[in-house]
């Protein structure tokens, strides 16, 4: 169970389909709250577009490491081994790469060689695609926060990131993100079944049952959610209790 915090200019925000951002609080405060509720890991995605964002997110990583004793991942804007090193040095456990890896796939191998595969999460944003030019699987990879189509087949790309040395895939349905309609189960199970590395399902969680569906029907190894936790609607502990009641083995809430 992984709460996700989208960070813009040092604040947690939440949008619908990657737009219309709403402020949801201080990232480190939220991280500490989720840790105390029994979250298994945390993900911070830096969605700030400005170039001085690096220092802000490094500071978030540093402050989080001071308060949080579970693994956490930082993604967004990582383009080089040096970008990743700065975050890992201050206490992040893993780095997630997305657009930069599509533009230059060797980045994944470079990170895996330098820090080990366990430090490298390939973040994939995918959207259902139909029509004559659609990829074979019916899912296309998008980059730049979901704005730019790449023509890449999501299944082909997922297998490629595994081959390059990614240790995990964080898979976001662009169609579902922010809709609260549940994960795209077809996308999740297609990718999970196609690779041998763990897949984290993301995008669309509106109820606690959606989380269990992601594991049971989507074959995801972990599930990620944001807004159902940020605004106090549900706690991580409630999510884990529900998942356990549906027969999923979880680390019990504390």
């Amino acid at each position: 169970m992984i709460p996700c915090l989208d960070v813009d200019e040092g604040r947690v925000v939440k949008g619908v389909n990657f737009i219309d951002l709403v402020d949801a609080g201080d990232p480190v405060e939220l991280a500490a709250r989720y840790d105390s509720q029994g979250a298994d890991e945390l993900v911070f995605l830096d969605i700030t577009a400005s170039s001085d964002a690096r220092d802000t997110i490094v500071d978030v990583a540093r402050r989080t490491a001071e308060q949080v004793y579970i693994p956490f991942t930082i993604g967004g804007g990582i383009r080089s081994v040096e970008d990743a090193r700065r975050l890992l040095r201050v206490g992040a456990d893993k780095t997630a790469v997305n657009s930069a890896a599509v533009a230059r796939p060797e980045l994944i191998s470079e990170l895996a060689r330098e820090f080990g595969s366990q430090c490298v999460v390939a973040s994939i944003d995918a959207r259902r695609s139909t029509g004559p030019d659609a990829p074979e699987s019916g899912y296309e990879v998008f980059v730049h926060g979901g704005r730019t189509p790449t023509g890449l087949d999501a299944v082909v790309w997922a297998r490629e990131v595994e081959r390059l040395g990614a240790g995990e895939i964080m898979l976001t349905s662009m169609d579902r993100d922010g809709t609260r309609d549940g994960f795209d189960i077809g996308l999740t199970s297609t990718i999970s079944d196609a690779v041998g590395i763990p897949v984290i399902a993301s995008g669309g969680v509106g109820t606690l049952d959606h989380l269990a569906d992601g594991v049971l029907d989507g074959h995801a190894d972990a599930v990620l959610a944001a807004s159902i936790f940020h605004f106090g609607e549900h706690t991580v502990a409630e999510a884990k209790t529900l998942m356990a009641s549906r027969g999923i083995t979880v680390r019990p809430p504390q």
Binding site: R62, A65, E66, Y69, L88, R89, V90, G91, A92, D93
Partner: peptide
């Protein structure tokens, strides 16, 4: 490796 976490936990 990441020594920061071990360091913070020891301080804690």
């Amino acid at each position: 490796g990441n020594l920061r976490s071990a360091q913070k936990t020891l301080e804690r």
